[in-house]
Design a protein around this nucleic acid. Structure first.
Length: 202
DNA sequence: GTAAGGATGCGCT
DNA sequence: GCGCATCCTTACG
């Protein structure tokens, strides 16, 4: 039985949590079925001083989960059609989270393919909205405790230390301040074929 | 009450 | 590479 990631894992620096989430197994249980993928692409969003973070304009009903205890899922809706999955980091009261941008499918491929309309295996979960669609994640899981809960959680994976990690600026945050747009707070497993698409940015 | 815009994906060119 | 879909959240009146 794989080791679950603990509360203390998430209650640390968001950059450290983001980097160390690479390689972990993301598990989503749907009834008897387990949908599993390896985390290969994440981004850190850190506090009210980060102009790209949803908490940059203070606490609202939408971002309230980020102000709560670490290890909970922050799931939000955007662009009129897309859900995004984050996991809350830092100590309670510090609004920060890691956005899960892409996973490499490991288990439950049939279900993932069905949910994604029969697309190719590299398009099942290679994007923050794609993986939510494939795993069936929506507002129902907002606030879910990913440390104690049984529907959505992370498992440690051996060999993480050997993964080739690359950093880049975060994606899709053109509205943020220049220093925040430039911050290398996206972490990816270099060369992995299941990374999310990186769009041009300045 | 209402308007503006978004941590994206997809289809078409 | 570009434009649009689509609706929730927020800010403001």
């Amino acid at each position: 039985m794989a080791r679950r990631l603990t509360r203390s894992f998430f209650a640390r620096s968001t950059l450290l949590v983001a980097r160390e989430l690479l390689g972990a197994r993301l598990v989503c249980r749907v009834g008897e079925e387990y949908l599993v993928g390896r985390v290969v692409d994440v981004e850190a969003y850190i506090g009210e001083s980060d102009s790209a973070c949803h908490a940059s304009r203070g606490r609202t009903p939408r971002n309230a989960v980020m102000y709560g205890p670490p290890g909970h899922a922050y799931v939000y809706f955007t662009y009129g059609m897309h859900w995004m999955l984050n996991v809350v980091t830092e100590r309670q009261g510090v609004p920060a989270a890691v956005l899960i941008r892409a996973i490499e499918p490991l288990e439950g491929l049939d279900t993932l393919r069905r949910r994604r309309g029969g697309r190719g295996d590299r398009e099942l979960t290679s994007g923050p909205a794609r993986l939510c669609q494939a795993l069936g994640i929506d507002r129902e899981l907002n606030g879910e405790d990913m440390v104690r809960g049984s529907r959505l959680y992370f498992e440690a994976s051996p060999g993480r230390e050997e993964l080739p990690v690359a950093t880049t600026p975060r994606i899709g945050i053109d509205y943020a301040r220049e220093e925040d747009r430039k911050a290398p707070w996206r972490f990816v497993v270099a060369g992995n074929p299941h990374l999310s698409r990186t769009r041009a940015r300045t």
